[in-house]
């Protein structure tokens, strides 16, 4: 088998052991790239895998599952780099797709430098141009989009979460499972994972929210965010923010929306006192409906908004909240 015809996805798992959404998205992209060309979609996973896992991966689009049993499933940079080294040396895939997730954004540059090959990170679109991949990437915070192609193989790209669409699960799909031999001595690792500390919150996660109300520097302070939380209670929705309120400690940084925060696409995104810097728009412009409130009629946020009010949020938020209470 000519490895250059293999498009390999790097598999990730959620803490409960289920396949991470980003992996399903990448399998979807892999299938699109394979098209009817006879190319194969593979996925490589760490840790011993039972049939339910490999079966799921095949039902979600994989033609091949490479299982690196000797590597612990929980992400360790050194273990995963060794796993991908083995994949690239033994299978020689033409394309390696990695999620731009907390794992992938750490892993992708490591493996690219290890193999001395080119990498495009946080890509928002990939397509063929002849037999070469073209990767679209936002640069300058989203002011421009750059399109790259590779002079090296495998063509490695990390793809932004939610860019890909999983295929409809198909249990009749067939595929092979193969073991991947990886030589790795975990005891020699320098990178030592100690613990995870979860943020204590009862709030709706931004990634899961159908509605997000977000505040920017124009909110003025932490006090004003309380008004936003009150509105969020009425709408039973999540609260987000642009970067300045996070940097100023008005709200935890896990609430930041944007190129270096969360990329969200809820049904409704309501922005209060956010100017609409491209770094922020990148994180929310795919929301179905966008509503903006800003004192500046020229604010960039109105470029992407469906509805807007020009005025002081300090007056608008209470009036808006009260009317919603009445109507809902």
């Amino acid at each position: 088998m000519d490895g250059s015809n293999i498009i390999s996805v790097v598999g990730e798992f959620a803490e409960d052991g289920s396949i991470a959404p980003v992996t399903l998205e990448l399998l979807g992209i892999g299938r699109e790239l394979a098209g009817g060309s006879g190319k194969q979609v593979a996925v490589v996973i760490a840790g011993p895998a039972d049939e339910s896992v490999t079966g799921n991966l095949i039902a979600q689009g994989a033609d091949k599952v490479y299982v690196a049993e000797s590597i612990e499933r929980k992400y360790s940079p050194e273990g995963y780099v060794k796993m991908l080294d083995a994949l690239c040396n033994q299978v020689k895939p033409g394309v390696l797709l990695i999620g731009h997730s907390p794992v992938g954004l750490d892993l992708a540059p490591r493996i690219a430098f290890d193999l001395n090959v080119g990498l495009v990170t946080d890509s928002i679109k990939v397509e063929w141009s002849g037999d070469k991949l073209k990767c679209y990437k936002q640069v300058y915070g989203g002011i421009a989009v750059a399109v790259y192609s590779f002079n090296t193989s495998p063509q490695i790209v990390s793809i932004r979460q939610r860019v890909g669409t999983p295929i409809a699960r198909d249990d009749s799909r067939s595929g092979n499972v193969e073991k991947l031999d990886v030589d790795f001595d975990a005891s020699a690792a320098r990178y030592n994972w100690l613990e995870k500390v979860e943020e204590e919150t009862t709030e709706i996660r931004l990634e899961d929210a159908e509605v997000i109300v977000a505040g920017g520097r124009g909110m003025g302070g932490g006090e004003e965010f309380k008004q936003l939380y009150e509105l969020a209670t009425v709408l039973n929705c999540a609260v987000g923010a642009s970067r300045p309120p996070c940097d100023s400690g008005w709200i935890p940084s896990s609430r930041q929306v944007g190129i270096t925060g969360k990329i969200v696409s809820p049904d409704v995104y309501i922005a209060f006192g956010i100017s609409g810097a491209t770094q922020h728009l990148t994180g929310m412009q795919d929301s179905k409906s966008i509503i903006a409130v800003n004192t500046d009629a020229e604010a960039n946020i109105f470029q992407v908004a469906d509805y807007g009010v020009v005025g002081d949020l300090k007056e608008i938020i209470p009036a808006f909240t009260n009317k919603l209470k009445e109507l809902r």
Binding site: N116, V117, G118, L119, V120, S129, K134, V139, G142, I143, A144, V145, A146, V147, Y148, S149, F150, N151, T152, A292, V293, A297, F302, Q303, V304, A305, D306, Y307, G308, V309, V310, G311, D312, E315, I316, I317, P318, A319, F320, N322, K323
Partner: peptide, 29 residues
């Protein structure tokens, strides 16, 4: 290792419907 093949500005088409009122809190409602 990479070629930069293209560099472009994404186009946006503004389509915002503005809600206007005499009084600003009225606009909120």
């Amino acid at each position: 290792l990479l070629n930069l093949d293209e560099l472009f500005t994404p186009v946006r088409e503004p389509h915002c419907e503005f809600i206007e009122a005499e009084d600003i809190s009225e606009a909120g409602a």
